[in-house]
Design a protein around this nucleic acid. Structure first.
Length: 564
RNA sequence: UGGGGAGUCGCCAAGUGGUAAGGCAUCGGUCUUUGGAGCCGACAUUCGAUGGUUCGAAUCCAUCCUCCCCAGCCA
Protein backbone atom coordinates (compact mmCIF):
# COMPACT_ATOMS: atom_id res chain seq x y z
CA UNK A 1 0.00 0.00 0.00
CA UNK A 2 1.25 3.42 -0.86
CA UNK A 3 -0.32 6.67 0.08
CA UNK A 4 0.57 8.39 -3.15
CA UNK A 5 -2.97 8.61 -4.42
CA UNK A 6 -4.47 9.67 -1.13
CA UNK A 7 -6.41 12.79 -2.02
CA UNK A 8 -5.29 15.57 0.26
CA UNK A 9 -7.75 18.23 1.10
CA UNK A 10 -6.21 21.64 0.47
CA UNK A 11 -5.50 23.62 3.60
CA UNK A 12 -7.63 26.61 4.45
CA UNK A 13 -5.86 29.91 4.99
CA UNK A 14 -5.88 29.53 8.77
CA UNK A 15 -4.26 26.12 8.76
CA UNK A 16 -1.76 27.51 6.31
CA UNK A 17 -0.82 30.22 8.80
CA UNK A 18 -0.57 27.68 11.59
CA UNK A 19 1.67 25.45 9.50
CA UNK A 20 3.87 28.38 8.58
CA UNK A 21 4.17 29.27 12.24
CA UNK A 22 5.09 25.71 13.10
CA UNK A 23 7.72 25.64 10.39
CA UNK A 24 9.23 28.91 11.52
CA UNK A 25 9.14 27.85 15.16
CA UNK A 26 6.91 30.71 16.24
CA UNK A 27 5.42 30.16 19.71
CA UNK A 28 7.93 27.37 20.20
CA UNK A 29 5.79 25.26 17.93
CA UNK A 30 2.85 25.35 20.31
CA UNK A 31 -0.70 25.63 19.01
CA UNK A 32 -3.32 26.77 21.47
CA UNK A 33 -6.75 27.94 20.37
CA UNK A 34 -9.90 28.76 22.23
CA UNK A 35 -13.63 28.74 21.72
CA UNK A 36 -14.95 31.83 23.56
CA UNK A 37 -18.76 31.90 23.69
CA UNK A 38 -20.66 34.51 25.62
CA UNK A 39 -23.18 32.64 27.80
CA UNK A 40 -26.14 34.65 26.57
CA UNK A 41 -27.86 32.16 24.32
CA UNK A 42 -27.73 28.64 22.95
CA UNK A 43 -25.06 27.51 20.53
CA UNK A 44 -26.14 27.22 16.90
CA UNK A 45 -24.76 25.72 13.71
CA UNK A 46 -22.66 28.84 13.16
CA UNK A 47 -20.91 28.21 16.45
CA UNK A 48 -20.38 24.63 15.34
CA UNK A 49 -18.26 25.95 12.50
CA UNK A 50 -16.10 27.86 14.96
CA UNK A 51 -15.93 24.95 17.40
CA UNK A 52 -14.87 22.52 14.69
CA UNK A 53 -12.28 25.01 13.48
CA UNK A 54 -10.78 25.78 16.87
CA UNK A 55 -10.81 22.28 18.29
CA UNK A 56 -9.94 20.83 14.90
CA UNK A 57 -6.87 22.99 14.35
CA UNK A 58 -5.66 22.31 17.88
CA UNK A 59 -6.04 18.56 17.47
CA UNK A 60 -4.43 18.47 14.04
CA UNK A 61 -1.33 20.30 15.20
CA UNK A 62 -0.87 18.60 18.53
CA UNK A 63 -2.14 21.53 20.54
CA UNK A 64 -5.12 22.16 22.73
CA UNK A 65 -8.27 24.23 22.68
CA UNK A 66 -9.72 26.03 25.66
CA UNK A 67 -13.37 26.54 26.36
CA UNK A 68 -13.62 30.05 27.68
CA UNK A 69 -16.79 31.85 28.64
CA UNK A 70 -16.67 35.48 27.67
CA UNK A 71 -18.70 36.63 30.63
CA UNK A 72 -17.88 40.30 30.85
CA UNK A 73 -21.41 41.64 30.69
CA UNK A 74 -23.44 40.65 33.76
CA UNK A 75 -26.69 42.01 32.41
CA UNK A 76 -26.95 39.52 29.55
CA UNK A 77 -25.46 36.31 30.82
CA UNK A 78 -26.93 33.37 32.67
CA UNK A 79 -25.86 29.98 34.01
CA UNK A 80 -28.55 28.18 32.04
CA UNK A 81 -26.76 29.21 28.89
CA UNK A 82 -23.41 28.22 30.23
CA UNK A 83 -24.66 24.72 31.04
CA UNK A 84 -26.20 24.30 27.63
CA UNK A 85 -22.95 25.38 25.97
CA UNK A 86 -20.96 22.81 27.90
CA UNK A 87 -23.44 20.10 26.92
CA UNK A 88 -23.48 21.11 23.29
CA UNK A 89 -19.73 21.29 22.79
CA UNK A 90 -19.36 17.88 24.43
CA UNK A 91 -22.17 16.48 22.34
CA UNK A 92 -20.46 17.73 19.20
CA UNK A 93 -17.58 15.55 20.26
CA UNK A 94 -14.94 17.91 21.62
CA UNK A 95 -13.02 17.89 24.84
CA UNK A 96 -11.24 20.81 26.48
CA UNK A 97 -9.75 18.68 29.24
CA UNK A 98 -9.02 20.84 32.27
CA UNK A 99 -9.06 23.98 30.19
CA UNK A 100 -12.40 25.46 31.00
CA UNK A 101 -12.07 29.13 31.82
CA UNK A 102 -14.00 32.32 32.27
CA UNK A 103 -13.01 35.84 31.44
CA UNK A 104 -14.28 36.54 34.94
CA UNK A 105 -11.50 34.32 36.32
CA UNK A 106 -9.18 37.13 35.29
CA UNK A 107 -11.09 40.11 36.64
CA UNK A 108 -8.49 40.85 39.30
CA UNK A 109 -5.57 40.59 36.88
CA UNK A 110 -7.43 42.59 34.28
CA UNK A 111 -7.98 45.27 36.87
CA UNK A 112 -4.30 45.38 37.80
CA UNK A 113 -3.36 45.66 34.14
CA UNK A 114 -5.76 48.57 33.82
CA UNK A 115 -3.97 50.37 36.61
CA UNK A 116 -0.77 49.66 34.74
CA UNK A 117 -2.17 51.34 31.63
CA UNK A 118 -3.18 54.33 33.71
CA UNK A 119 0.21 54.52 35.34
CA UNK A 120 1.83 54.63 31.93
CA UNK A 121 -0.50 57.32 30.71
CA UNK A 122 -2.24 54.89 28.36
CA UNK A 123 -5.68 55.12 29.91
CA UNK A 124 -7.82 57.69 31.62
CA UNK A 125 -11.09 58.03 33.42
CA UNK A 126 -13.63 59.94 31.41
CA UNK A 127 -16.64 61.53 33.07
CA UNK A 128 -18.61 62.52 30.02
CA UNK A 129 -22.08 61.06 29.65
CA UNK A 130 -22.69 58.29 27.15
CA UNK A 131 -24.36 60.80 24.94
CA UNK A 132 -21.50 63.28 25.09
CA UNK A 133 -19.01 60.56 24.36
CA UNK A 134 -20.94 59.71 21.24
CA UNK A 135 -20.80 63.31 20.13
CA UNK A 136 -17.10 63.61 20.83
CA UNK A 137 -16.42 60.45 18.87
CA UNK A 138 -17.00 62.12 15.52
CA UNK A 139 -18.36 60.20 12.56
CA UNK A 140 -17.04 57.87 9.92
CA UNK A 141 -15.79 60.82 7.92
CA UNK A 142 -15.01 63.38 10.63
CA UNK A 143 -12.41 62.92 13.32
CA UNK A 144 -13.45 62.93 16.96
CA UNK A 145 -12.42 65.47 19.58
CA UNK A 146 -10.54 64.89 22.79
CA UNK A 147 -12.64 64.64 25.90
CA UNK A 148 -12.04 67.47 28.38
CA UNK A 149 -11.13 64.78 30.89
CA UNK A 150 -8.48 63.26 28.66
CA UNK A 151 -5.71 65.22 30.31
CA UNK A 152 -6.41 64.25 33.90
CA UNK A 153 -3.29 63.45 35.87
CA UNK A 154 -2.21 59.90 36.44
CA UNK A 155 -2.88 60.35 40.15
CA UNK A 156 -6.38 61.58 39.59
CA UNK A 157 -7.09 58.77 37.12
CA UNK A 158 -5.81 56.19 39.55
CA UNK A 159 -7.85 57.62 42.37
CA UNK A 160 -11.00 57.75 40.31
CA UNK A 161 -10.52 54.27 38.92
CA UNK A 162 -9.99 52.87 42.41
CA UNK A 163 -13.12 54.57 43.58
CA UNK A 164 -14.94 53.14 40.56
CA UNK A 165 -13.88 49.72 41.72
CA UNK A 166 -14.99 50.58 45.26
CA UNK A 167 -18.48 51.13 43.91
CA UNK A 168 -18.63 54.77 44.83
CA UNK A 169 -20.41 55.75 41.63
CA UNK A 170 -23.64 55.03 39.85
CA UNK A 171 -23.75 53.38 36.43
CA UNK A 172 -22.43 55.62 33.71
CA UNK A 173 -20.81 58.21 35.99
CA UNK A 174 -17.32 57.37 34.77
CA UNK A 175 -15.63 55.25 32.17
CA UNK A 176 -12.09 54.02 31.82
CA UNK A 177 -10.84 54.68 28.30
CA UNK A 178 -7.70 53.79 26.41
CA UNK A 179 -5.78 56.91 25.40
CA UNK A 180 -5.08 56.24 21.75
CA UNK A 181 -6.17 58.64 19.03
CA UNK A 182 -9.46 60.49 18.72
CA UNK A 183 -8.68 61.25 15.09
CA UNK A 184 -8.01 57.70 14.02
CA UNK A 185 -9.81 56.68 10.84
CA UNK A 186 -10.52 53.44 12.68
CA UNK A 187 -13.41 54.18 15.04
CA UNK A 188 -12.23 51.46 17.37
CA UNK A 189 -9.07 53.38 18.10
CA UNK A 190 -10.83 56.61 19.14
CA UNK A 191 -10.15 56.08 22.82
CA UNK A 192 -12.25 52.94 23.23
CA UNK A 193 -13.91 52.09 26.53
CA UNK A 194 -12.03 49.64 28.70
CA UNK A 195 -14.16 49.50 31.84
CA UNK A 196 -17.70 50.56 32.53
CA UNK A 197 -19.58 50.81 35.80
CA UNK A 198 -22.35 48.27 36.17
CA UNK A 199 -23.79 47.97 39.64
CA UNK A 200 -25.03 44.53 38.88
CA UNK A 201 -24.64 41.02 40.20
CA UNK A 202 -22.56 38.73 38.03
CA UNK A 203 -23.59 35.09 37.68
CA UNK A 204 -20.15 33.93 38.79
CA UNK A 205 -18.43 36.70 40.69
CA UNK A 206 -21.61 37.74 42.41
CA UNK A 207 -21.13 41.16 44.07
CA UNK A 208 -17.37 41.24 43.95
CA UNK A 209 -17.36 43.81 41.15
CA UNK A 210 -19.30 46.80 40.03
CA UNK A 211 -16.99 47.62 37.15
CA UNK A 212 -16.70 45.24 34.24
CA UNK A 213 -14.14 45.10 31.42
CA UNK A 214 -15.16 45.48 27.80
CA UNK A 215 -14.70 42.68 25.28
CA UNK A 216 -11.99 44.55 23.39
CA UNK A 217 -9.92 44.74 26.53
CA UNK A 218 -10.75 41.45 28.22
CA UNK A 219 -10.39 39.30 25.15
CA UNK A 220 -6.79 39.92 24.14
CA UNK A 221 -5.65 39.79 27.75
CA UNK A 222 -7.50 36.55 28.40
CA UNK A 223 -5.94 35.10 25.27
CA UNK A 224 -2.48 36.19 26.32
CA UNK A 225 -2.90 34.93 29.88
CA UNK A 226 -3.95 31.52 28.59
CA UNK A 227 -1.01 31.50 26.18
CA UNK A 228 -3.34 31.24 23.22
CA UNK A 229 -1.33 31.27 20.01
CA UNK A 230 -4.03 31.71 17.39
CA UNK A 231 -7.15 33.62 18.34
CA UNK A 232 -9.72 32.85 15.67
CA UNK A 233 -12.73 35.09 15.36
CA UNK A 234 -15.19 36.34 12.78
CA UNK A 235 -14.78 39.05 10.17
CA UNK A 236 -16.55 41.82 12.01
CA UNK A 237 -13.63 41.93 14.45
CA UNK A 238 -11.18 42.68 11.72
CA UNK A 239 -11.04 46.37 12.54
CA UNK A 240 -10.69 45.55 16.20
CA UNK A 241 -7.37 43.86 15.53
CA UNK A 242 -5.32 47.06 15.92
CA UNK A 243 -6.90 47.48 19.33
CA UNK A 244 -6.31 43.83 20.17
CA UNK A 245 -2.65 44.33 19.33
CA UNK A 246 -2.50 47.65 21.16
CA UNK A 247 -3.63 46.02 24.39
CA UNK A 248 -1.05 43.32 24.09
CA UNK A 249 1.76 45.67 23.17
CA UNK A 250 1.14 48.03 26.04
CA UNK A 251 1.01 45.50 28.82
CA UNK A 252 3.55 43.06 30.29
CA UNK A 253 1.76 39.94 29.14
CA UNK A 254 3.20 36.43 29.07
CA UNK A 255 2.49 35.84 25.37
CA UNK A 256 1.48 37.46 22.12
CA UNK A 257 -1.48 35.74 20.52
CA UNK A 258 -2.38 36.47 16.93
CA UNK A 259 -5.96 37.29 16.00
CA UNK A 260 -7.12 35.83 12.69
CA UNK A 261 -10.55 36.48 11.24
CA UNK A 262 -12.71 34.19 9.10
CA UNK A 263 -16.21 34.46 7.66
CA UNK A 264 -19.04 33.40 9.92
CA UNK A 265 -21.54 30.87 8.64
CA UNK A 266 -24.79 31.92 7.01
CA UNK A 267 -27.27 29.33 5.83
CA UNK A 268 -30.23 29.55 3.49
CA UNK A 269 -33.75 29.37 4.92
CA UNK A 270 -32.25 29.98 8.33
CA UNK A 271 -31.63 32.75 10.77
CA UNK A 272 -28.45 32.66 12.83
CA UNK A 273 -28.35 35.66 15.07
CA UNK A 274 -28.68 35.19 18.78
CA UNK A 275 -31.04 38.10 19.00
CA UNK A 276 -33.41 36.61 16.46
CA UNK A 277 -33.20 33.11 17.87
CA UNK A 278 -33.98 34.52 21.29
CA UNK A 279 -36.94 36.33 19.78
CA UNK A 280 -38.27 33.11 18.24
CA UNK A 281 -38.12 31.49 21.66
CA UNK A 282 -39.53 34.43 23.63
CA UNK A 283 -42.37 35.04 21.24
CA UNK A 284 -43.16 31.34 21.19
CA UNK A 285 -42.77 30.96 17.45
CA UNK A 286 -41.06 27.72 18.32
CA UNK A 287 -41.18 25.37 21.24
CA UNK A 288 -37.98 26.48 22.95
CA UNK A 289 -34.28 26.54 22.20
CA UNK A 290 -34.30 22.84 21.40
CA UNK A 291 -37.29 22.91 19.08
CA UNK A 292 -36.29 20.60 16.21
CA UNK A 293 -36.80 23.45 13.76
CA UNK A 294 -34.23 25.63 15.48
CA UNK A 295 -30.72 25.83 14.01
CA UNK A 296 -29.34 25.42 17.52
CA UNK A 297 -27.24 22.41 18.35
CA UNK A 298 -29.88 21.48 20.92
CA UNK A 299 -32.49 21.70 18.17
CA UNK A 300 -30.51 19.59 15.73
CA UNK A 301 -29.87 17.04 18.45
CA UNK A 302 -33.57 16.73 19.14
CA UNK A 303 -34.27 16.64 15.45
CA UNK A 304 -32.08 13.55 15.18
CA UNK A 305 -28.91 14.99 13.69
CA UNK A 306 -25.70 13.26 14.64
CA UNK A 307 -22.57 15.07 15.83
CA UNK A 308 -20.64 13.36 13.04
CA UNK A 309 -22.96 14.78 10.39
CA UNK A 310 -22.54 18.28 11.74
CA UNK A 311 -18.79 17.90 11.92
CA UNK A 312 -18.65 16.63 8.34
CA UNK A 313 -20.77 19.53 7.24
CA UNK A 314 -18.43 22.00 8.93
CA UNK A 315 -15.46 20.38 7.31
CA UNK A 316 -17.05 20.49 3.92
CA UNK A 317 -18.10 24.13 3.90
CA UNK A 318 -14.51 25.18 4.45
CA UNK A 319 -13.05 28.26 6.06
CA UNK A 320 -12.38 31.46 4.16
CA UNK A 321 -12.85 35.21 4.36
CA UNK A 322 -15.65 35.45 1.86
CA UNK A 323 -19.10 36.22 3.21
CA UNK A 324 -21.56 33.79 1.74
CA UNK A 325 -24.64 31.72 2.31
CA UNK A 326 -24.32 27.97 2.49
CA UNK A 327 -27.22 26.03 1.02
CA UNK A 328 -29.09 24.23 3.80
CA UNK A 329 -29.23 21.28 1.38
CA UNK A 330 -25.56 20.79 2.17
CA UNK A 331 -26.41 20.11 5.82
CA UNK A 332 -29.28 17.85 4.86
CA UNK A 333 -26.94 15.91 2.65
CA UNK A 334 -24.57 15.40 5.57
CA UNK A 335 -27.20 13.92 7.84
CA UNK A 336 -28.62 11.63 5.14
CA UNK A 337 -25.15 10.44 4.29
CA UNK A 338 -24.51 9.49 7.90
CA UNK A 339 -27.91 7.99 8.71
CA UNK A 340 -28.06 5.99 5.49
CA UNK A 341 -25.07 4.05 6.73
CA UNK A 342 -26.06 3.75 10.36
CA UNK A 343 -29.82 3.94 10.88
CA UNK A 344 -31.73 0.67 11.35
CA UNK A 345 -34.59 0.32 8.87
CA UNK A 346 -38.12 0.00 10.05
CA UNK A 347 -41.51 0.15 8.36
CA UNK A 348 -43.95 2.81 9.46
CA UNK A 349 -47.14 3.97 7.84
CA UNK A 350 -47.81 7.64 8.39
CA UNK A 351 -51.21 8.01 6.76
CA UNK A 352 -52.68 4.53 6.91
CA UNK A 353 -55.28 2.91 4.74
CA UNK A 354 -56.32 -0.72 5.20
CA UNK A 355 -55.12 -3.27 2.70
CA UNK A 356 -57.04 -6.54 2.90
CA UNK A 357 -55.59 -9.64 1.26
CA UNK A 358 -58.71 -11.59 0.35
CA UNK A 359 -57.01 -14.87 -0.38
CA UNK A 360 -54.85 -14.86 2.74
CA UNK A 361 -56.25 -17.11 5.50
CA UNK A 362 -58.11 -15.16 8.13
CA UNK A 363 -56.45 -16.79 11.11
CA UNK A 364 -52.99 -16.98 9.62
CA UNK A 365 -49.98 -14.87 10.58
CA UNK A 366 -46.33 -15.24 9.82
CA UNK A 367 -43.06 -13.40 10.34
CA UNK A 368 -40.66 -12.23 7.71
CA UNK A 369 -37.01 -11.38 7.96
CA UNK A 370 -36.19 -7.95 6.71
CA UNK A 371 -32.71 -6.44 6.61
CA UNK A 372 -31.86 -4.06 9.42
CA UNK A 373 -29.71 -2.10 7.04
CA UNK A 374 -29.01 -3.07 3.43
CA UNK A 375 -25.93 -0.84 3.54
CA UNK A 376 -24.58 -2.94 6.37
CA UNK A 377 -25.28 -6.65 5.85
CA UNK A 378 -23.51 -7.45 9.09
CA UNK A 379 -26.34 -5.72 10.95
CA UNK A 380 -28.48 -8.77 10.18
CA UNK A 381 -32.23 -8.94 9.96
CA UNK A 382 -35.29 -8.30 12.06
CA UNK A 383 -38.64 -10.14 12.24
CA UNK A 384 -41.68 -8.34 10.92
CA UNK A 385 -45.15 -9.83 11.53
CA UNK A 386 -47.54 -10.21 8.61
CA UNK A 387 -51.24 -10.98 8.48
CA UNK A 388 -54.34 -10.69 6.34
CA UNK A 389 -55.06 -7.06 7.09
CA UNK A 390 -52.29 -4.56 6.68
CA UNK A 391 -51.87 -0.82 6.57
CA UNK A 392 -50.21 0.82 3.65
CA UNK A 393 -49.56 4.46 2.92
CA UNK A 394 -52.64 6.18 1.60
CA UNK A 395 -50.63 7.91 -1.09
CA UNK A 396 -49.26 4.59 -2.31
CA UNK A 397 -52.68 3.81 -3.77
CA UNK A 398 -54.40 5.65 -6.58
CA UNK A 399 -57.65 4.64 -8.14
CA UNK A 400 -56.92 6.47 -11.36
CA UNK A 401 -53.15 6.53 -11.59
CA UNK A 402 -51.40 8.95 -13.88
CA UNK A 403 -48.64 7.76 -16.16
CA UNK A 404 -45.48 6.75 -14.37
CA UNK A 405 -47.29 6.01 -11.14
CA UNK A 406 -45.96 2.54 -10.39
CA UNK A 407 -47.57 1.97 -7.05
CA UNK A 408 -50.84 0.26 -6.24
CA UNK A 409 -53.92 0.82 -8.38
CA UNK A 410 -56.75 -1.44 -9.53
CA UNK A 411 -55.26 -4.35 -11.45
CA UNK A 412 -51.63 -3.50 -10.72
CA UNK A 413 -49.17 -5.71 -8.90
CA UNK A 414 -46.61 -4.42 -6.40
CA UNK A 415 -44.14 -5.95 -4.04
CA UNK A 416 -44.75 -5.68 -0.31
CA UNK A 417 -41.30 -5.29 1.08
CA UNK A 418 -39.91 -8.58 2.41
CA UNK A 419 -43.34 -10.23 2.13
CA UNK A 420 -45.31 -11.03 -1.04
CA UNK A 421 -46.37 -9.67 -4.39
CA UNK A 422 -49.88 -8.42 -4.21
CA UNK A 423 -52.38 -7.48 -6.91
CA UNK A 424 -55.10 -4.91 -6.33
CA UNK A 425 -58.59 -6.23 -6.95
CA UNK A 426 -60.79 -3.37 -5.84
CA UNK A 427 -61.76 -0.92 -3.16
CA UNK A 428 -64.38 -0.43 -0.49
CA UNK A 429 -65.88 3.00 0.05
CA UNK A 430 -67.32 4.63 3.11
CA UNK A 431 -70.60 6.53 3.21
CA UNK A 432 -68.91 9.64 1.93
CA UNK A 433 -67.66 7.78 -1.10
CA UNK A 434 -64.04 7.86 0.07
CA UNK A 435 -61.94 4.78 -0.41
CA UNK A 436 -61.75 3.24 3.04
CA UNK A 437 -60.17 -0.07 2.21
CA UNK A 438 -58.13 -1.52 -0.63
CA UNK A 439 -58.49 -5.15 -1.51
CA UNK A 440 -55.99 -7.44 -3.14
CA UNK A 441 -54.82 -11.00 -3.59
CA UNK A 442 -51.33 -12.27 -2.89
CA UNK A 443 -49.16 -14.75 -4.74
CA UNK A 444 -47.90 -17.40 -2.30
CA UNK A 445 -45.08 -18.20 -4.72
CA UNK A 446 -43.49 -14.84 -4.01
CA UNK A 447 -43.03 -15.49 -0.30
CA UNK A 448 -40.32 -13.32 1.20
CA UNK A 449 -40.77 -10.72 -1.48
CA UNK A 450 -37.96 -12.08 -3.62
CA UNK A 451 -38.29 -12.71 -7.31
CA UNK A 452 -41.26 -14.65 -8.59
CA UNK A 453 -40.62 -18.08 -10.10
CA UNK A 454 -41.69 -16.75 -13.47
CA UNK A 455 -39.39 -13.75 -13.23
CA UNK A 456 -42.09 -11.12 -12.82
CA UNK A 457 -40.74 -7.89 -11.43
CA UNK A 458 -43.12 -5.32 -10.00
CA UNK A 459 -42.02 -1.76 -10.61
CA UNK A 460 -42.76 -0.69 -7.07
CA UNK A 461 -42.11 -1.93 -3.58
CA UNK A 462 -44.37 -0.73 -0.79
CA UNK A 463 -43.80 -0.57 2.93
CA UNK A 464 -46.57 -1.92 5.14
CA UNK A 465 -47.41 -2.84 8.67
CA UNK A 466 -49.67 -5.60 10.01
CA UNK A 467 -52.86 -4.08 11.40
CA UNK A 468 -53.16 -6.33 14.40
CA UNK A 469 -49.48 -6.14 15.32
CA UNK A 470 -48.75 -2.50 14.64
CA UNK A 471 -48.16 -0.03 17.42
CA UNK A 472 -49.55 3.47 17.37
CA UNK A 473 -47.31 6.46 17.16
CA UNK A 474 -47.33 10.20 16.74
CA UNK A 475 -45.05 11.52 14.06
CA UNK A 476 -43.97 15.13 13.80
CA UNK A 477 -43.10 16.18 10.29
CA UNK A 478 -40.70 19.07 10.38
CA UNK A 479 -39.94 21.29 7.46
CA UNK A 480 -37.79 24.40 7.17
CA UNK A 481 -38.77 27.14 9.59
CA UNK A 482 -38.72 29.87 6.96
CA UNK A 483 -40.23 30.05 3.52
CA UNK A 484 -37.66 32.53 2.32
CA UNK A 485 -34.13 31.72 1.36
CA UNK A 486 -33.00 34.79 3.23
CA UNK A 487 -35.51 35.46 6.02
CA UNK A 488 -33.70 38.65 7.04
CA UNK A 489 -34.26 40.22 3.67
CA UNK A 490 -37.77 41.60 3.99
CA UNK A 491 -39.64 44.57 2.66
CA UNK A 492 -40.22 47.68 4.74
CA UNK A 493 -42.49 47.16 7.68
CA UNK A 494 -42.05 43.39 7.76
CA UNK A 495 -39.77 41.27 9.87
CA UNK A 496 -38.20 37.86 9.63
CA UNK A 497 -41.09 36.59 11.71
CA UNK A 498 -43.36 37.20 8.75
CA UNK A 499 -41.26 34.74 6.80
CA UNK A 500 -41.98 31.83 9.10
CA UNK A 501 -43.21 28.76 7.27
CA UNK A 502 -46.79 28.14 8.44
CA UNK A 503 -46.38 24.45 7.75
CA UNK A 504 -43.00 23.95 9.34
CA UNK A 505 -44.61 21.38 11.62
CA UNK A 506 -47.30 18.86 10.82
CA UNK A 507 -48.31 16.41 13.52
CA UNK A 508 -49.62 13.03 12.43
CA UNK A 509 -51.24 11.23 15.32
CA UNK A 510 -52.61 8.06 13.74
CA UNK A 511 -49.41 6.48 12.53
CA UNK A 512 -48.71 2.77 12.60
CA UNK A 513 -45.26 1.38 13.19
CA UNK A 514 -43.89 -2.13 13.17
CA UNK A 515 -43.87 -3.56 16.72
CA UNK A 516 -40.12 -4.01 17.02
CA UNK A 517 -39.57 -0.37 17.97
CA UNK A 518 -42.03 -0.42 20.87
CA UNK A 519 -39.37 -0.10 23.55
CA UNK A 520 -37.08 2.32 21.75
CA UNK A 521 -35.69 5.00 24.00
CA UNK A 522 -35.58 8.71 23.32
CA UNK A 523 -32.98 9.69 20.79
CA UNK A 524 -33.05 6.38 18.89
CA UNK A 525 -32.79 6.97 15.16
CA UNK A 526 -34.42 4.94 12.42
CA UNK A 527 -34.97 5.06 8.75
CA UNK A 528 -38.65 4.58 8.03
CA UNK A 529 -38.26 2.84 4.72
CA UNK A 530 -39.14 4.96 1.72
CA UNK A 531 -40.02 7.90 3.95
CA UNK A 532 -37.01 9.33 5.69
CA UNK A 533 -35.08 9.40 8.92
CA UNK A 534 -36.89 9.71 12.22
CA UNK A 535 -35.87 9.70 15.85
CA UNK A 536 -37.70 9.06 19.09
CA UNK A 537 -38.57 12.29 20.89
CA UNK A 538 -38.26 12.65 24.67
CA UNK A 539 -41.98 13.46 24.73
CA UNK A 540 -42.66 9.77 24.12
CA UNK A 541 -44.53 7.83 26.77
CA UNK A 542 -44.92 4.08 27.17
CA UNK A 543 -47.37 2.95 24.52
CA UNK A 544 -47.27 6.26 22.76
CA UNK A 545 -44.08 6.85 20.87
CA UNK A 546 -43.42 10.26 19.38
CA UNK A 547 -41.10 10.50 16.40
CA UNK A 548 -39.47 13.55 14.88
CA UNK A 549 -38.64 13.55 11.22
CA UNK A 550 -34.96 14.34 10.85
CA UNK A 551 -34.86 14.39 7.06
CA UNK A 552 -36.84 13.00 4.16
CA UNK A 553 -35.57 10.47 1.72
CA UNK A 554 -35.26 11.57 -1.84
CA UNK A 555 -38.55 10.94 -3.55
CA UNK A 556 -38.34 10.67 -7.31
CA UNK A 557 -42.07 10.22 -7.72
CA UNK A 558 -42.74 13.38 -5.74
CA UNK A 559 -40.46 15.20 -8.14
CA UNK A 560 -42.25 13.86 -11.16
CA UNK A 561 -45.60 14.71 -9.63
CA UNK A 562 -44.47 18.19 -8.64
CA UNK A 563 -43.10 18.87 -12.11
CA UNK A 564 -46.60 18.60 -13.56
C1' U B 1 -17.14 61.34 0.30
C1' G B 2 -13.01 57.97 6.38
C1' G B 3 -11.19 53.11 7.62
C1' G B 4 -11.21 47.74 7.22
C1' G B 5 -12.46 43.32 4.24
C1' A B 6 -14.20 40.43 -0.06
C1' G B 7 -15.29 39.44 -5.39
C1' U B 8 -13.52 31.93 -9.32
C1' C B 9 -20.06 27.40 -11.90
C1' G B 10 -27.03 28.25 -9.01
C1' C B 11 -24.44 27.53 -3.57
C1' C B 12 -19.79 26.49 -0.73
C1' A B 13 -14.60 26.22 -2.21
C1' A B 14 -9.33 24.97 -4.28
C1' G B 15 -5.91 27.63 -7.23
C1' U B 16 -0.31 31.99 -5.13
C1' G B 17 2.71 33.30 -13.51
C1' G B 18 2.34 27.72 -17.14
C1' U B 19 -3.00 27.13 -19.56
C1' A B 20 -9.77 26.41 -14.00
C1' A B 21 -9.63 20.63 -8.05
C1' G B 22 -13.55 18.93 -5.08
C1' G B 23 -18.40 19.02 -2.58
C1' C B 24 -23.73 20.46 -2.67
C1' A B 25 -27.64 21.34 -6.14
C1' U B 26 -29.30 20.20 -11.10
C1' C B 27 -29.83 16.96 -15.51
C1' G B 28 -29.11 12.16 -17.97
C1' G B 29 -27.95 6.82 -17.67
C1' U B 30 -27.17 2.25 -14.82
C1' C B 31 -28.41 -0.79 -10.90
C1' U B 32 -31.93 -1.92 -7.15
C1' U B 33 -36.87 -6.47 -2.57
C1' U B 34 -36.53 1.48 -0.17
C1' G B 35 -39.06 5.41 -7.32
C1' G B 36 -33.73 5.37 -1.18
C1' A B 37 -28.58 4.34 -1.38
C1' G B 38 -24.64 3.10 -4.84
C1' C B 39 -22.27 3.44 -9.64
C1' C B 40 -21.30 6.11 -14.51
C1' G B 41 -21.68 10.62 -17.19
C1' A B 42 -22.91 15.97 -18.16
C1' C B 43 -22.29 20.66 -15.70
C1' A B 44 -16.95 27.81 -15.70
C1' U B 45 -12.88 28.35 -23.29
C1' U B 46 -13.43 31.19 -18.15
C1' C B 47 -12.10 33.57 -12.96
C1' G B 48 -16.42 41.51 -11.05
C1' A B 49 -14.90 45.11 -15.38
C1' U B 50 -11.39 47.54 -18.44
C1' G B 51 -6.58 48.49 -19.75
C1' G B 52 -1.32 47.06 -19.16
C1' U B 53 3.25 43.78 -18.19
C1' U B 54 4.57 38.78 -20.13
C1' C B 55 6.04 33.72 -24.87
C1' G B 56 2.15 32.81 -21.30
C1' A B 57 -2.20 36.04 -16.22
C1' A B 58 -7.72 33.83 -12.11
C1' U B 59 -2.78 34.61 -10.36
C1' C B 60 1.65 40.75 -11.38
C1' C B 61 0.46 46.37 -12.19
C1' A B 62 -3.26 50.41 -12.95
C1' U B 63 -8.03 52.25 -13.00
C1' C B 64 -13.03 51.36 -12.22
C1' C B 65 -17.51 48.58 -10.38
C1' U B 66 -20.19 45.70 -6.69
C1' C B 67 -20.96 43.63 -1.88
C1' C B 68 -19.95 43.18 3.54
C1' C B 69 -18.24 45.41 8.39
C1' C B 70 -17.26 49.87 11.75
C1' A B 71 -19.86 55.91 14.79
C1' G B 72 -22.58 50.14 22.04
C1' C B 73 -20.43 52.47 28.58
C1' C B 74 -22.70 44.68 23.38
C1' A B 75 -19.81 40.54 22.06
Amino acid sequence: MTTIDTPTRPLDFIREIVEDDQRSGKNGGRVVTRFPPEPNGYLHIGHAKSICLNFGVAAEYGGRCHLRFDDTNPSKEEVEYEDSIVDDVRWLGFDWGQHRYHASDYFEQLYQFAEHLIANGNAYVDSLSADEIRQYRGTLTEPGRDSPFRSRSIEENLDLFRRMRACEFPDGAHLLRAKIDMASPNMNMRDPALYRIRNERHHRTADAWCIYPMYDYAHPLSDALELITHSLCTLEFEDHRPLYDWCIENLPLPSRPQQIEFARLNMSYTVLSKRKLLQLVREKCVDGWDDPRMPTLAGFRRRGYTPAAIRNFCERIGVAKRNGVVDVAMLEHAIREDLNLTAPRVMAVLRPIRLVIDNYPESQAEEFDSPINPEDPAAGARKVPFSRVLYIEREDFMENPPKKFFRLSPGSEVRLRSAYFVTCTGVVRDDAGEVSEVHCTYDPATRGGGNAPDGRKPKATLHWVSAEHAIDAVVRLYDRLFVSENPEDVEEGKSFLDMINPSSLEVLSACKVEPGVASASAGTRYQFERLGYFCVDPDSEPGRLVFNRTATLRDTWARIAAAK
